[in-house]
Design a protein around this nucleic acid. Structure first.
Ligand code: ZN
Ligand code: ZN
Ligand code: ZN
Ligand code: ZN
Lengths: 146, 146
DNA sequence: CTTGAAGCTATAGTTGCTAGAGACATTAGG
DNA sequence: CCTAATGTCTCTAGCAACTATAGCTTCAAG
């Protein structure tokens, strides 16, 4: 049995984050020692590692909640899990597209600046006027159907 | 003089957002009509367009605050503004790198799944065990959706 | 036995908005 | 001119996903 600190170190998750996950029901309530401290076994360790890895891959806590409850029913079809992963891939691809456009505009800005005064700085100029941009980088309203 | 609604439409910013910007001091307190409604002139319109564009390029409100106060002193050197833009470019590049790795892992996951049961699903398997990943996509920093 | 690290609960703060309630102002139609 | 429909006002609370603080208690090492 691990204390919360050891568990956190083992999984690469900060202690308050573990307590937060318990609070929102992503982790079950931990067993307690005689002195009321949380104790974790192997199962909790695996569950936390799963959460951590999914967070690292950009899944939201809501998606992780669904993935966890799916993984608790191993004999069912994995279609729902795959759909969540595909939605996450689509989300990542759309962010990637947007960031690529942003990078291009920011590069244009900083390259054009010759280091003069603010009045002539292309950085300030471009920020004041989107029509000076080469691409349409504006924030799209993203929606994810369920 | 524009009312807050017209200004919002003109700049592509929602009304509560404009009030929020005023509240945090990013926009100056607006003039008021006889009936206590906010009224905006050309200068406010430009300032809001600047903010909107910088937000679209991913700058934080803190960075925008600095950029705005720099642009109010046109005869000074633009070095500070350029530094902010360069930092933003670096931030975007680092997010881009991370998202590229994420995309690769997510693609591997969804491609490998043949559509069986959860017990054999590569999606769940990979999420349970980072050593099945091809890249080291982990990064304790900066998972901020833009 | 004492000290310092680690744990506990509870609350509030972060970023950049967005949503609601309930009241007042303005505008268009009849 | 009256009314109904918007628009605007202030204020408060909520969203994700934590992080930080305060003021305790418990545990492990020396
Ligand atoms: Zn410059
Ligand atoms: Zn632009
Ligand atoms: Zn599958
Ligand atoms: Zn991995």
């Amino acid at each position: 049995m691990l204390t919360i600190g050891k568990l956190g170190k083992a999984a690469g998750v900060k202690v308050p984050t573990i307590r937060y996950y318990e609070q929102i029901g992503l982790l079950p309530e931990a067993e307690r020692s005689a002195g009321n401290q949380r104790l974790y076994g192997h199962k909790a360790q695996e569950r936390l590692a799963f959460i951590r890895h999914a967070r690292d891959l950009g899944f939201t806590l809501e998606a992780i909640r669904d993935l966890l409850s799916l993984s608790d029913r191993p004999d069912q079809s994995c279609a729902a899990a795959d759909a969540i992963a595909k939605a996450q891939l689509a989300e990542v691809e759309s962010r990637l597209a947007r960031l690529t456009a942003l990078k291009a505009e920011l590069e244009r800005m900083v390259v054009q600046c010759a280091g003069g005064s603010i009045a002539d700085c292309p950085v300030i100029e471009v920020l004041s006027d989107h029509s000076l941009c080469a691409t349409d980088h504006r924030h799209p309203e993203s929606e994810v159907p369920s």
